[in-house]
Design a protein around this nucleic acid. Sequence first.
DNA 1: GCGGGCGTTCACAGCGCGGTCACGCCCGTT
DNA 2: AACGGGCGTGACCGCGCTGTGAACGCCCGC
Lengths: 119, 119
Amino acid sequence: MKQMDDREVLRAGALEVRPAEHVVRAGNRTVPMSVRELDLLAALARRQGSVVRREELYALVWGTDLREHDRSVDVYVHKLRTKLAQALPDWAFIHTHFGFGYRFEPEPSHAFHKTATTS
Amino acid sequence: MKQMDDREVLRAGALEVRPAEHVVRAGNRTVPMSVRELDLLAALARRQGSVVRREELYALVWGTDLREHDRSVDVYVHKLRTKLAQALPDWAFIHTHFGFGYRFEPEPSHAFHKTATTS
DNA sequence: GCGGGCGTTCACAGCGCGGTCACGCCCGTT
DNA sequence: AACGGGCGTGACCGCGCTGTGAACGCCCGC
């Protein structure tokens, strides 16, 4: 079940997701997200570090079964990547696992060059 | 509940709101506000950084339940934006969260020449 | 009585969002 | 290397939500 706790906060590196408030923050700035985008991001972030299959993501976010050839998840992953990359260019959060699904986890982006990666 | 403290001061960037005195200052200049405008601005400013739903804003400012199709909040947000933009053209304070409500938070306006984006 | 500010409502325009496609690249497999 | 399906990505469309100017009364000060 989805969390009912209004105080749920999902953290990943410099990213912070507050599903109940419909807010995503990167550093100290707010990243605008649509409902679907935020729901999907929250679903991914709750499973941080593990690969989630499309069927499962679709069920969690859309609430129905994923139909064959439905690319909605891919499309929204793309939208998320775009927005997250704009907010935090040095980090990649959503990783494709070919033939399986997606994994959410902050990793230095490939073009990453400077400053401290810490972690 | 609303603050009873006459000394309440809400700050946001170069903006300063003193609800008890019915005064809004931008830099060292006073921005004229009607009662509704100031109440709404104060309600938003008290929740700085988080998304507030129209229903809640309406309840806080008008004191009754928001009726369906009532666009009052939108209209007053527009009035506020106009006045704030006139006072501080380089900053945007009230941000729309599609399908939910509004978020108050100072951000460089889009046409703002991007120098220091802070940290 | 008159004018102006204010609050409210309305109508129309414009935009964002969700959903779907299509094209082409990428990947794993053979 | 060639193949076939998986995936990235930009384009498009319909619709509901939001932006915005304008009209209308009300109330108050003059």
